[in-house]
Design a protein around this nucleic acid. Structure first.
Length: 287
DNA sequence: CTCCAGGTTCCGG
DNA sequence: CCGGAACATGGA
């Protein structure tokens, strides 16, 4: 165990957490571990039962990043009772935690996520990091996500070259707005959920779905409930089976009232479970 | 080749 | 407020 430090990580699943669509810049290593970045700090991490082996000196950083202080047992106990679909998803996703991501990198990454598969988001994120951010020497292929000031100086064409498509205009506009202080991401921390959502939605290309992702994955707003195509399907098929003409507005209101103070956790579990099931179903259909 | 992907914006009822 | 359409790109 030379070169590793250990920390306790009960009720945690590293692989599921990293592959549940929250972050897109962690790379599998031989032996089941990962290397990635927490902000600008390169980290290696692998799980052995209820412990994490991490790069020495990053213990506290890793514990904070993966929210190991969240009491998952208590969180799941706040979920609605007698909900087989949610119970199944929560069981399947046991150990997934909401990562505490750096604000800008989370916002910028999810800004590029619209109408893109997870694999594409990873590609675009990787391209942006390598085109505009600093690579970490000896930690190939890691590169730090570029600051808004850096992207604000890019051209829309350069961003399109990273595979962004129409999202290039949005990312550029948002980078400029943040760099100029039109929207102060740190100041959003002090706002209540509703005001924070509205503030983030002022940025070009940021609507309610992306804003809620950022609130959940970066601002630690565990009530935030992003509704994407997957979750919309789950909600309709699970809770509005016979009601053909339910509006998105009604789905939002239902989710806000139904899932409770840790609705974001419920959302992530329903999302990851549905996506996993969909995949295996597609795989089965192909043979 | 067709379909669709962790949406947002703009437009006409 | 609501439903549709446009918006780019790439993997299945």
């Amino acid at each position: 165990m030379n070169g590793w430090a250990q920390i306790a990580a009960p009720q945690f699943n590293l692989r599921l957490t990293l592959e549940s669509g929250q972050v897109f810049h962690w790379w599998p290593e031989e032996g089941g571990g990962y290397r990635g970045l927490i902000g600008a700090i390169p980290v290696r991490v692998r799980q052995v039962c209820d412990r994490l082996c991490v790069t020495p000196g990053t213990e506290a950083l890793v514990a904070y990043y993966f929210a190991l202080d969240h009491d998952l047992e208590a969180i799941c106990s706040t979920f609605p009772k007698n909900d087989p679909a949610l119970t199944l998803a929560a069981t399947y996703c046991r150990g997934i935690r909401m990562i505490r991501q750096p604000l800008w990198e989370c916002l910028a990454t999810f800004l590029t996520s619209s109408m893109k598969q997870v694999a594409h988001i990873r590609q675009m994120s990787h391209a942006i990091r390598h085109q505009f951010g600093n690579p970490i020497e000896g930690w190939e292929p890691l590169a730090v996500y570029p600051e808004p000031e850096r992207l604000a100086q890019a051209t829309e064409e350069q961003l399109r070259a990273c595979g962004l498509g129409y999202r290039a205009r949005h990312l550029l506009g948002t980078a400029q707005a943040v760099a100029q202080g039109v929207v102060d991401l740190e100041a959003v921390r002090a706002m209540d959920d509703e005001a924070a959502l509205a503030e983030l939605c002022r940025l070009p290309g940021v609507g309610p779905k992306i804003a809620n992702c950022v609130l959940l994955f970066a601002y630690e707003r565990t009530r935030a409930f992003p509704i994407d195509v997957w979750i919309e399907r789950v909600l309709r098929e699970t809770y509005f089976k016979r009601k053909r003409n339910t509006t998105v507005r009604q789905l939002k209101e239902f989710a806000a009232g139904y899932f409770g103070p840790y609705g974001g956790y419920a959302q992530q579990y329903l999302f990851h479970h549905a996506r996993s099931q969909g995949r295996s179903r597609n795989l089965r259909a192909e043979d």
